[in-house]
């Protein structure tokens, strides 16, 4: 049914006379507007990269180079400063994630060889404990940040122990003994803070338990 409607509209066309007249007008129009187009198929096209822009001036080019160099220096200055500042940050600081996820990762990547990599890991383990001591000195070590530090420290110690075992298995017993001795000496030196971290962790667990009990009673 709807197709019939369209068929009816289709019948609306130009008459034969109108068409003939239109064609004549068009033929005359073509004569007065001849073809200007020239086939360019076989003509070589000049590369736009070889032509110099009329607006090109070495002075602006030099300025551009100065600006780019300035931006690069500024970038290095800002990022370098951030990376440097992050090294002395503590848990809870804004730059602390930069220290953990960027600075230390870069250090690990740069270290070549199993021994060097384990040494870097030991260095980071020591760093975790130093951070805890620093916080403790500032009276900022609490049950909120202590468990996190403790967790990081435990993970690192575990990794170091595994690495040392691997080095020993590979036949480099001397390096393994050296690394183990270094770690032990260090852990002895910072035993106090390790115990403190453990205490804080325990405090938090006990508090959580008593909270659960009181909630259970209610």
């Amino acid at each position: 049914m709807d197709q019939e409607i369209f068929k009816k509209i289709k019948k609306e066309t130009l008459t034969e006379e109108e068409k003939t007249e239109g064609l004549l007008v068009l033929e005359n129009f073509i004569k007065t507007n001849p073809i200007e187009y020239v086939e360019t198929k076989n003509r070589p096209i000049k590369s736009p990269y070889l032509s110099k822009s009329p607006y090109f001036n070495m002075f602006f080019m030099r300025q551009k180079m100065f600006v780019s160099a300035g931006i690069a220096v500024l970038f290095i200055f800002i990022t370098g400063g951030t990376v440097f500042a992050a090294n002395s940050s503590l848990p809870g600081d804004i730059l602390y994630p930069v220290k953990i996820h960027l600075n230390e990762k870069v250090e690990s990547l740069v270290a070549v060889g199993a021994k060097a990599q384990t040494e870097v890991k030991i260095k980071h383990t020591i760093e975790r404990l130093k951070e805890a001591e620093e916080l403790s000195d500032q009276n900022k070590l609490d049950e909120n940040n202590a468990p996190e530090i403790e967790k990081n420290f435990s993970t690192r110690t575990k990794e170091v122990s595994q690495d040392v075992a691997k080095i020993k298995d590979s036949g480099d017993e001397k390096s393994a003994i050296e690394l183990n001795a270094g770690l032990k000496q260090f852990l002895d030196k910072h035993q106090e803070i390790i115990l403190k971290l453990g205490e804080k962790q325990e405090e938090k667990e006990q508090r959580n338990k008593s909270k659960e009990k009181s909630q259970g009673k209610n």
């Binding site: 019939e4 409607i5 369209f6 009816k8 509209i9 609306e12």
Partner: peptide
């Protein structure tokens, strides 16, 4: 629709 001319159909659309 049979009675409709071309213009009528056009108006309908």
């Amino acid at each position: 629709i049979d009675k409709m001319d071309g213009e009528g159909a056009l108006v309908l659309i």
